[in-house]
Structure formats: structure tokens, C-alpha cells
């Protein structure tokens, strides 16, 4: 236990160091790789403040999926990356530095002199856990107490995907997202894309299942599933689906639709929108979570893949 403060101190320094590197790296590619490391380290920070659910999300989405998205962009913009040009002047940078330092100091003061006692809804959240047949309070907040937020977030994901799709050229509408990957059948990527998915799929499903009582959840599980899919698509083992496909669109909607149907059913069986009946809350929660996880996985995979850039035939 005596080494723990040392570890935390080093971790904090490392996170700040990597963030700094991400800002000053000359090449965008290097900056993005720094950012992925930043996401992973931030995951450790979250584990250090006893938020393992968030740690999983940060590492998977904040570092992993966002990292892949930015890597793809950096790789494509790379050939034309302008030489380090017209850097803002020294005076401007110093002024901005002072401004940002003031913001940091303000936040640091808030951290150092917090309100006492700290506001908390932990007791209220714990109170109804047995009635929901759940043990993980974060899952309870996401799927029961604030289920409306989670439902609307599914809508945000869908809107973002529509936004991404809309940015493709008109002639490709309904076609395959992204450019065709250069298929090399004996690379390390192919090997990984064959080796990892069976393990990753089991782990993703486990994260969803265990989230009732342990850290995990639909987001984390869905992201792991999405990662396995993205891996197979990057290796060229699986072609991405045509965005005009009706089955795909149904899958994209299934999570939100189940949520809404269960929500309205709440009026009949439990007396309110998104209320769960006392007799079988767990069954309904699973009914929502399973399509939701699939929808998250598919949406994340397609958000990373980008707009349609190929014909259905190519």
C-alpha cells in the first residue's frame, strides 16, 4: 500500500506528459498515437478513483475507438499535411498560455476547496437496487433511474451516423462505407483479425451480462463487439455492409425502438413511461440491453467506417 501514492503521482505526471506530447508532436500521426496512450492512461486514472465502469468506457471509447477514427483521418490527410507553417506568433501563444493557466488555476481552486459535505445521490441510488434486482449502481442509473437519458443518447448516436453518412458524395449513397482496404492475407493484422474476434465477442457479451452486479455494461460490451468488427473490416476479412441495406437500418434502429416500446408499455404495466413492473424488472432490463448493445456495436463500427465511398458492387 505504501507504493500507491508514488504510483498515483507517476500516473498523474505521465498523463500530463502524454497530453503535452499530443499537443506539441510535429506529425499528426504521432499526436494521434499519443492520444491513444492518453486514453489508456486516463482509464488507469479512473480505476484509481474507484470508477471502474468509467475506466472501461474511457479506455474502449475515449482511447480505442476515437483513436482508430483519428488514425484513419490522419493517414488520409497525411500526404498533404502542410509543412509547419504560419505558427501563431510568440506574443499570441504567451497570451493564450496565460489565459489557459488562469482557467486551470480556477479549476484547481475548486478541486482544492470543495464544498463540504460533498453532494451525493449514492444513498438514494442504493435504496432501490434490490427492487431492480441489480447490484451495480451505475447500471441502475443508466438503465433505470435515468433511462430516458440513455434512450436519448441512442438517438444522438443515430443522428451522428446520419450526419456522417450525409457527408459522402451523392453518387455513392447506399454504397459501402470507406475505401477498399488493401488485402494482404499473411500480415500480422490478418492473424490478429482471425485470432481476437472469438475471444473479443465472448468478452463483449460477458461485459454486458456481468454489468448487473459488476463493472461493465451495454456501452462497454458494445464497444468491444464493435472493435472486433472494425478489426475484421480493416483486415479485409469482412466487407462493411452497404449503408442502403434495409436489414442494417433495422439493426441500427432496434435498440431505440425496443427502448421506446418498453417505455410506453410502462404506462400499462407499471404506471409511467419507462417504469419497470416490480414483478420482473430484470427481464425487461435485459430485453432493453441486448438490442441496445447490438445497436451500439453496429453504430460505433459504422461511425468509424465513415460515409459511403464505394459502389455496392466494388
Amino acid at each position: 500500500m505504501t507504493l500507491l501514492p508514488l504510483y498515483y503521482g507517476l500516473l498523474a505526471l505521465l498523463v500530463i506528459g502524454v497530453a503535452w506530447w499530443t499537443l506539441v508532436a510535429r506529425e499528426t500521426m504521432a499526436a494521434v498515437i499519443g492520444f491513444i496512450a492518453y486514453g489508456m492512461l486516463l482509464g488507469l486514472v479512473w480505476a484509481g478513483i474507484a470508477s471502474v465502469d468509467v475506466a472501461l468506457t474511457e479506455a474502449a471509447i475515449g482511447g480505442g475507438v476515437t483513436g482508430v477514427l483519428l488514425l484513419r483521418a490522419a493517414a488520409r490527410l497525411r500526404p498533404t499535411e502542410p509543412a509547419p507553417h504560419e505558427k501563431p506568433g510568440l506574443v499570441f501563444r504567451v497570451l493564450v498560455g496565460i489565459f489557459c493557466a488562469i482557467v486551470t488555476i480556477g479549476l484547481a481552486v475548486v478541486v482544492l476547496f470543495p464544498t463540504d459535505p460533498a453532494p451525493s445521490l449514492a444513498i438514494a441510488a442504493a435504496e432501490h437496487l434490490p427492487a431492480l434486482e441489480l447490484g451495480n449502481p451505475v447500471t441502475a442509473v443508466l438503465i433505470a433511474y435515468r433511462a430516458l437519458d440513455t434512450m436519448l443518447e441512442k438517438v444522438v448516436l443515430l443522428l451522428a451516423l446520419i450526419g456522417v453518412w450525409s457527408l459522402g458524395p451523392d453518387r455513392n449513397w447506399g454504397g459501402l462505407p470507406g475505401r477498399a482496404p488493401a488485402v494482404v492475407t499473411d500480415s500480422a493484422l490478418t492473424f490478429l483479425a482471425k485470432l481476437l474476434p472469438p475471444i473479443g465477442i465472448v468478452f463483449g457479451v460477458y461485459l454486458l451480462w456481468t454489468s448487473a452486479d459488476n463493472p461493465g455494461g451495454a456501452f462497454q460490451g458494445g464497444t468491444v463487439l464493435a472493435a472486433m468488427w472494425i478489426l475484421a473490416m480493416m483486415a479485409g476479412l469482412r466487407a462493411p455492409p452497404a449503408i442502403g441495406s434495409r436489414a442494417l437500418r433495422l439493426l441500427l434502429l432496434s435498440g431505440t425502438i425496443t427502448f421506446i416500446v418498453v417505455g410506453f408499455a410502462g404506462f400499462l404495466i407499471a404506471g409511467g413511461f419507462l417504469s419497470y413492473p416490480a414483478a420482473f424488472p430484470k427481464a425487461l432490463i435485459l430485453l432493453i440491453e441486448i438490442p441496445m448493445t447490438l445497436t451500439i456495436a453496429v453504430t460505433l463500427g459504422l461511425l468509424v467506417s465513415g460515409p459511403a465511398e464505394r459502389d455496392k458492387t466494388s
Binding site: 470508477s51 468509467v54 475507438v65 449514492a122 441510488a125 443518447e153 448516436l157 451522428a160 456522417v164 455494461g217
Partner: peptide
């Protein structure tokens, strides 16, 4: 800071952050 009821932290801000991370990713995409 809001740790209570035997939990390591207040679950409400944690759930908000999980939602926030996903929304931040959508906006970035």
C-alpha cells in the same frame, strides 16, 4: 467525493460521464 452507501463513488456523475464519453465520440466522428 460523493462516495457513500458502500460505493466507491456517487454513481450518478459516473453514469453521466459514460454517456458523455459516447456523445463526445459521436461529435468527434
Amino acid at each position: 467525493r460523493g462516495a457513500a452507501a458502500g460505493f466507491g463513488g456517487d454513481p450518478v456523475p459516473q453514469a453521466l460521464v459514460i454517456t458523455g464519453i459516447v456523445v463526445a465520440f459521436s461529435a468527434s466522428a
